[in-house]
Write a protein that binds this DNA or RNA. Sequence first.
DNA 1: CCAACCATGTAAGCTGTTACATGATTGA
DNA 2: TCAATCATGTAACAGCTTACATGGTTGG
Lengths: 183, 183
Amino acid sequence: MPAKVTPLGYALLGLLRGEPRSGYALRKVFETTLLGNYSSSPGSIYPALKGLEKAELIAAEPIARGNVFSLTPMGREALDAWLTAPAQGEPADILMLRFAFLQELGRPEVTRAFLISFADAARGSRDGIRAFMAGDIGPSMPLQSRLAVDFGLRNVEAQLAWAENALKQLEDHWSQNAPQTGG
Amino acid sequence: MPAKVTPLGYALLGLLRGEPRSGYALRKVFETTLLGNYSSSPGSIYPALKGLEKAELIAAEPIARGNVFSLTPMGREALDAWLTAPAQGEPADILMLRFAFLQELGRPEVTRAFLISFADAARGSRDGIRAFMAGDIGPSMPLQSRLAVDFGLRNVEAQLAWAENALKQLEDHWSQNAPQTGG
DNA sequence: CCAACCATGTAAGCTGTTACATGATTGA
DNA sequence: TCAATCATGTAACAGCTTACATGGTTGG
């Protein structure tokens, strides 16, 4: 079993893919970017880095002050396996983290598969909610309960629309920027 | 300080407002309704109930088999304080839990205030994201990062639209079902 | 009698947080 | 020299989950 990695762990692996950094530099990224759902406090990042190091997914190289961490081959493997998996099960914020990291992977077909499975999942949720609201229980619910369900429905609809639009924009982008026919 | 209550605790208080129930009955509610974000396993509910009992927010009355829990006056106070607070800070799923429980509270002005503050918060998020995307950093970001931000934008837009629509529907409902002029 | 359900609980662990502690270096 | 920043870490806890344990009752 290839060493379990936590969501925060994947976030760190993803940030280390391109550029090796120190723990402090990683914290700064969490502070200053949209990764702010995670705390940038030392109590989060340093223990996570230690765990990744113990699992041999990252390696520490001491520098003048502190250490610089970089991905090991195993670490890159673990990250790629995570990025390549179908877009299901995980909460939306984690999926968006994956989507952002997919860019650096530079493999359009993987991003495409991600968006397609994401859209499929959203369509499934949407249809489930619609069926529920059209079935026996839905219409008999009081207004405010129906509205609470409608909240969920509007969210998945927005996510589906996002995925379809994102796919369209990326297809355009890919066909413009890499018009060669094959491998 | 009036005894801290966890999100799961509030969910239990809300369910017990109308109807006293046993721990097992509460678990069944979690299993069969849209409260499924919480686990219905005994390891979740029973310890939470014990905590609420120790805080004197609920009271247990033994029946033939097991116990039936009901809100104490303090428990009702704590629940009402939570329901009445402005719709900010908490994650969306918790806010929807509150919105659903607001129905049983039967105080339209509180539900109205909730939706208005919810919409205000959504508008604030939306404007923040739009400003970010129109500023220095936004346009310089690579396409896929911009799309990740667009995901967040579309979500808050959907939530804002939901709140505005919900308010409209409820105002209609209230004016039809309770057309008397005052207290 | 055995399976299924009612009913309650404990133990351990996961993931992440806040708060605290430490010390070195840099710049005003 | 004094504050700010770099850099790393520990301790305690929060909130919830899974897995396990236990026993009574009911129905076929």
